[in-house]
Nucleic acid binder design. Structure first.
Length: 569
RNA sequence: CUCUCGGUAGCUCAGCUGGAUAGAGCAUCUGCCUUCUAAGCAGAGGGUCGCAGGUUCGAAUCCUGCCCGGGAGGCCA
């Protein structure tokens, strides 16, 4: 409809003002007295021509062609052009919406998109912060796919580096304890109970293979790095133990994500970037390019990247003085790998704590002569939990963080997803546990699901009374229910596509959540004031045509969010 | 100190590419179940959009300054 309106307005602009093109808005109105659609075309033109918008509007409207879908056009306020649609236009829309597979929702310019999200370190279970990113990334992928894009969901596994060694060391020490060996457990090691479980499984797999021998003691206070080096000397094949720990953690993570309806379809290992081939590893080749382009220098035996030349506040280390590459260096290689796979757009979903990291990565991409505009990094802000009006304290260091699993075990997958998604992602989120657990209208998830369940229940009642709904007959008889209420609902259904395309454009999910809440409210209100199973067949069919369209909105909307649409509650 | 994100109803938040009377939900108050789900609905009250300037026909929205709050600034990841 929007494009039809634009077409006739633009034609009028061309004719009356001899302009080839003009950038103006056509938007839905907020109040009914302003019609269904409204355009600011005269206001824009007025500014440009320094003329009264109202007069321009009158000129534009004077000779608009008559259309079947157009009831009337009005000029209002400072010069808005308001369009009132005919009932016929509304029923035509509904017919279309119900009959097709929503292929009209697909963009005419589909893209190939890579979205990387979660990518939490395999050093422990994922916590609620990652959970928010997980919900967001998966819903965004669903939405982009629904609107026509081809989407790959990727998880980048940091399976090498200091943190993974510390993980292995933590497990190794707990493993020693299982053999009644006394150890000093350093503060820097992972404190959570999951380490002990991991140690238990390590014992089942390796028996006493990695049991410290007499000459190797771990009772002294020493730093983890020294301990790890010591272990590698005594156990040359210790990397097998490390791999075991990482795989175990990744299995946990995969399990938690799957329970949360998050399904990545590609897993990239950081370690693989270092795999040797004839002309060196992928990682080495990327570093060589940076060196050749003279964006690096040696200082204090470390290799530095000149990120200051790319608006970063200082230069950054790529290879430490102990020859170990930094996380940043790996990430440059990883992103180069993303670019090599020929996507139209790359999306990163990152926690807010990585915010300052964006300039240096973009700098590195430019140094590699890659178009950093292709990469869009979205920031997910922190989640804090509130229970009984009080903040739940969390401390990662002590292992007291709340895991995603704990949260969904308590409040359920559906509510957790919705609460994560309903807030603008770059805003801090206060997660009210009590509210999320409520099963009444205070809880928006239940409110929306209930709307769907009510519709299903209507259908069940129809069946029970041995009636058959003829949807097409209903569509032909929509004029029977062309009251303000119904037309308002049709208008709201029509808004679905706008909401989705806005989400697609802005890479956001929360507008969909708000929309579903609103249309659910309209339905409940309508439901309350109406009888649906009418004696008159035409009237009954007409009402159900509308109800079926609503059902389709709830189903599709919730599906994008990966939230159940229950048939009964 | 630098960067960054915020400050909108009592509370939690939408709206921010400038537009019409600033919107939801919760909470508060008043009503509605012999009917197909009351897990619901109808109605009411509630606002100097942090402060001060500026830009213009028009500012919650854009610009500048200030006040207050969150977060980030490793050869950790």
């Amino acid at each position: 409809m929007k494009s039809e309106i634009r077409e006739i307005l633009l034609a009028s602009v061309k004719k009356n003002y001899k302009k080839k093109s003009l950038d103006f808005d056509i938007s839905r109105t907020k109040t009914k007295s302003h019609g269904n659609w409204s355009s600011n075309v005269a206001l824009i033109l007025g500014k440009e021509l320094k003329q009264q918008p109202k007069i321009i509007a009158e000129n534009l409207v004077k000779n608009l062609p008559k259309k079947k879908w157009l009831e009337k056009v009005e000029i209002a306020g400072p010069g808005f052009v308001n369009f009132f649609l005919t009932e016929e236009a509304q029923s035509f829309f509904l017919k279309n919406f119900l009959s097709n597979d929503l292929s009209s929702f697909k963009s005419k310019m589909p893209r190939k998109i890579l979205i990387e999200y979660v990518s939490s370190n395999p050093t422990g279970p994922i916590h609620i912060g990652h959970g928010r990113g997980a919900a967001f990334g998966s819903a965004l992928a669903n939405l982009l796919r629904f609107t026509g894009d081809e989407v790959i969901e990727e998880y980048y596994i940091n399976d090498r580096g200091l943190q993974t060694d510390v993980l292995a060391l933590s497990v190794f020490l707990r493993y020693q304890e299982l053999f009644k060996v006394k150890v000093n457990f350093p503060e820097e090691c992972y404190q959570g109970d999951y380490i002990k479980e991991c140690a238990f499984l390590a014992k089942e797999k390796f028996f006493d293979k990695y049991l410290a021998k007499k000459d190797l003691k771990f009772t002294d206070q020493s730093n983890p790095l020294d301990l790890i080096n010591k272990i590698y000397i005594v156990f040359p094949k210790f990397s097998e133990f490390v791999d075991f720990c990482i795989h175990l953690q990744m299995d946990q993570i995969r399990g938690d994500l799957s329970k949360f309806k998050v399904h990545h379809n590609n897993w990239v290992s950081e370690k693989d970037l270092y795999k040797d081939s004839d002309d060196g590893s992928f990682f080495e080749r990327i570093i060589k390019v940076l060196k050749n382009n003279e964006f690096t220098y040696l200082q204090d035996e470390a290799l530095w990247f000149k990120s200051k030349e790319f608006n970063d506040e200082k230069d950054r280390v790529l290879i430490r003085n102990n020859q170990d590459p930094t996380y940043f260096a790996s990430d440059i290689a990883y992103h180069k790998f993303k670019f090599e796979r020929d996507f139209d757009q790359l999306i990163n979903v990152w926690g807010a704590d990585h915010h300052g990291y964006i300039p240096r990565l973009n700098g590195a991409l430019e140094a590699l002569e890659l178009d950093s505009n292709k990469l869009k990094t979205l920031i997910i802000q922190f989640v804090s939990l509130v229970r009984s009006g009080k903040n739940v304290s969390m401390s990662t260091r002590k292992g007291e963080f709340i895991t995603l699993k704990e949260l969904i075990d308590e409040v359920g997958v559906e509510a957790t997803r919705f609460f994560f998604l309903a807030r603008k992602s770059d805003q801090a989120l206060e997660f009210d546990i009590d509210l999320a657990k409520k099963e009444d209208k205070n809880n928006p998830v239940y409110y929306i699901q209930y709307a769907h369940a009510r519709i299903c229940s209507l259908e069940k009642e129809v069946k029970k009374r041995k009636l058959i709904i003829d949807q097409n007959n209903g569509l032909d008889n929509l004029k029977l229910i062309a009251n303000e209420n119904e037309l308002d609902i049709i208008n709201e259904i029509e808004r679905f596509q706008d909401v989705l395309s806005q989400c697609r454009k802005d890479l956001e999910i929360h507008p969909l959540c708000f929309y579903l809440r609103e249309i659910a409210s309209k339905f409940h209100s309508y439901y309350n004031a109406n009888k649906f199973i009418e004696d008159n067949k035409d009237l009954r069919d007409a009402k159900f045509a509308l109800v079926f369209a609503l059902k389709k909105v709830f189903q599709q909307g919730l599906e994008i969010l990966s939230i159940n649409a229950p048939e009964k509650m």
